[in-house]
Computed example of a mutant assay.
Amino acid sequence: MPRLIHDRITWLTYAQLGVWGFFLYGFGPVVPLLRDEQGTSAAVASLHSTSVALGALIGGYLFPLLTRRFDRGPVLWCSLAGIAVGAIGLTTLRPLPATLAAVVVAATFGTMVVCGVNTVLADHHRSAAPAAISEANAACAGLGVLAPLVIGLAVSAGIGWRPALAVEVALIALVALAAVTFRVRLPQAASAAAAAETGSRRLPRAYWLAWALMSVTGSIEICLSLWGADVLRTHAGLSRGAASAALAAIVGGMFLGRLVGGRIALRVAPVPLLLGALSVSLLGFTLFWAFPVGWIAVAGLMIMGLGNAMHYPLGISIALAAAKGQADRAAGYSSYAMAVGSGIAPVVLGWVADGVGPHLAFLLLPVFIAVSALLALRLGRILRPRVSATPPPTPAPV
């Protein structure tokens, strides 16, 4: 069984991904509040999600190019500074074009942080990479769970969401200070010559199936993040502040799911574990959608978070393992999958919600879960022959 060692490099990457999680999971509850401030429709407000998608495309394109030129460490630290710039822009600017631009900046650099952390952990932990990536995303959700709570409390207290989201800048400064204090340096990637050689190879079919899987599961998460509060307000009867704060339930579920899932990933193959996670997501969605009672809906969100927790860590782990020797390139391309999910699904859901209401529009989510399960089954069939074709170990001589 693989063993996961928690050294200083591991803890630093967890913290780097965690501060991005605070912004990402705080951004979701902010979108309905921005819609109210700017007087736009749900479809127009969902353009902020499209800005995340645009930033993901830009970040995914730039990441492999920049890491070949400057290596992963400098790229990661510059990306964290870029997130701070985007957060400052979003919390100080008010017109719709300005907030959209600020989100593009934050998402561009946030995507490069995600790519950098995933590739560092994949190279650093090898066979234990799925567990390490799961725990890193647990750190992301762990800090992320605080954001909806802080924003909901700030809105309820009458000071607005902007000061709460501005905490992101202080968190980034703290991570940088900790790295300097404890003298932690991120390991270098493969040489430029090796990267150029592997970059000319085609990525295998298993990688592209994992890519498609991440785009669909990403659609589930972003739709919940952006429009889950609206369903809680219109169907479960929660106030604006309470609905924003209640989204912490799904992030809390993801935090717990990734902590536990990281341990399970050391013992269970990725595809069966992913199918189990999708089943838990479907159960949570049923409770969230079917019952117009606040506490039951919030409990459904937490259960859905437990299932959603392992969608991305398992998807990216499979993708990086399938792209042997091309980790930076594969990680960059994987951000395109997330861009497809965050750029299309929430806009479609917002457009449907403008016509039939957010509650009925959310029936798109079980469709996404079903498609994800079909992709996972197909991926399992492709990967299984590789496992069965592996020759058994030669017995040691007596």
Rank of each mutant, 00 (worst) to 15 (best):
F255P: 04
V298M: 01
I264T: 11
L226S: 13
G241Y: 04
V231Q: 05
V251Y: 15
A212V: 02
L247G: 12
Y207C: 09
A206C: 05
V216C: 03
L301D: 12
M302W: 14
L232I: 01
A196P: 10
S191W: 08
V280M: 08
G252C: 02
H235D: 02
V293N: 11
V298K: 03
A249G: 05
A236Y: 13
A277L: 04
V268L: 09
R201H: 08
W227I: 10
V251S: 10
F288I: 03
T217N: 01
L282G: 13
L283Y: 08
A206W: 12
P272Y: 07
V216T: 02
R263G: 05
G237T: 05
L203G: 13
T234G: 06
V271I: 11
E197P: 00
A192D: 11
L256K: 05
G253A: 00
A193E: 15
F285Q: 00
S279F: 15
C223F: 01
G252F: 13
G253Y: 04
A229P: 11
S279T: 15
S279C: 15
L238T: 03
S244N: 09
L301Q: 06
A194T: 12
F291Q: 02
I264S: 10
G252L: 05
A194K: 12
L232Q: 01
A236S: 15
A212W: 12
G253S: 06
F291G: 02
L203R: 00
A265E: 06
A229F: 11
I296V: 15
L283D: 09
V216P: 01
L301V: 07
Y207A: 12
V268N: 03
G284M: 03
R240V: 14
A190L: 09
M304H: 00
Y207G: 12
V260C: 13
L203F: 09
T286M: 12
V280C: 08
I303W: 00
I303M: 07
E197T: 07
W289G: 08
L232R: 04
G294V: 04
D230K: 14
T198H: 14
V280W: 05
A290L: 13
A212C: 13
